[in-house]
């Protein structure tokens, strides 16, 4: 692996982020504050504690996951779709780089951006509720893995998309419902038994559950299974990207 090439892509992608740093910082702060006003204060005051955790604090991991997943997908999909759209992709295809280097550069940059946003949300949330993180290392590991795996997924969407509508399609139609129904704002145990079973087919459940475990020691599914799910998802995305670059699907004629 040629680190010079990875660094060149990473650095180039990050300059775009730094150009709009203020926007990147303000928008998650505002949206998180809104969530806390609506869910934490207005609704949360009428909801009892969830398994010993105040509702305001309970939704923090879900909120972070929600934004991080959406941001990872949009950053990474846009990052690789944009060169395709304006034609600068020729440079990537004619450069002496392997797919791993391209992925490391683009996905690394996209994941860094969403990690930054995740941290900003965590910081904002701590202004509204008392937060203690029981397993900080596990929390960081889950956050990083989520950023990376969903950036990989976004990268695939960006490679696949043939126009801007398609770029929006998957996040809107598939990811948003999965994330909202993945237990961001509730515990799976609050659902009727049938829906609890259905929910287990939603991969996001494992992420949020694992992440929440890192905060409060509470989990809907065992932590080991959460880790396996996210690792499997990462491997699947990498496999798909490897196949795309090997066959040139939607990349090379």
């Amino acid at each position: 692996m040629k680190l010079t090439a990875v660094w060149a892509i990473y650095r180039y992608e990050m300059t775009r982020f730094f150009r709009t740093l203020l926007q990147s910082f303000i928008s998650p702060v505002i949206s998180t504050s809104l969530y806390f006003v609506v869910f934490g204060t207005a609704i949360g005051s009428r909801i009892q504690e969830v398994e010993g955790v105040s509702y305001g604090a309970f939704i923090v991991p879900g909120l972070i996951m929600l934004s991080v997943i959406m941001q990872s997908i949009s950053n990474a999909s846009f990052g690789i779709y944009f060169p395709k759209f304006i034609g600068t992709i020729y440079e990537l295809l004619s450069a002496p780089v392997s797919f791993l280097e391209i992925v490391a550069g683009y996905v690394g940059a996209a994941a860094t951006k969403s990690l930054f946003i995740g941290v900003v949300i965590l910081g904002t949330a701590s202004l509204f509720v008392d937060l203690t993180i029981q397993n900080p290392l596990a929390m960081i590991a889950f956050l990083v893995l989520t950023c990376v795996s969903f950036s990989l997924m976004g990268f695939i969407i960006g490679l696949w998309a043939g126009n801007f509508e398609q770029l929006q399609l998957v996040p809107l139609l598939i990811v948003t419902p999965l994330v909202f129904l993945g237990g961001s704002f509730y515990s799976i145990s609050m659902l009727p038994p049938f829906w609890q079973t259905v929910t287990l087919f939603n991969p996001v459940v494992y992420l949020i559950s694992g992440f929440r475990w890192a905060f409060f020691g509470l989990a809907d599914v065992p932590i080991g299974i959460s880790l396996m799910a996210i690792s499997g998802f990462t491997a699947l995305c990498l496999g798909i990207i490897w196949w795309i670059f090997r066959t040139g699907w939607r990349l090379r004629d």
């Binding site: 090439a5 060149a8 892509i9 180039y12 300059t15 944009f82 600068t88 020729y90 780089v97």
Partner: peptide, 26 residues
């Protein structure tokens, strides 16, 4: 390679875009 179409990222500076290519080529 100098392509036929003028394919450049519009918001990027000349310096950055040239530097990117050098890096891409290792």
């Amino acid at each position: 390679l100098v392509p036929q179409e003028i394919n450049l990222e519009p918001f990027e500076t000349v310096w950055n875009t040239v530097r990117l290519t050098r890096g891409l080529f290792g």
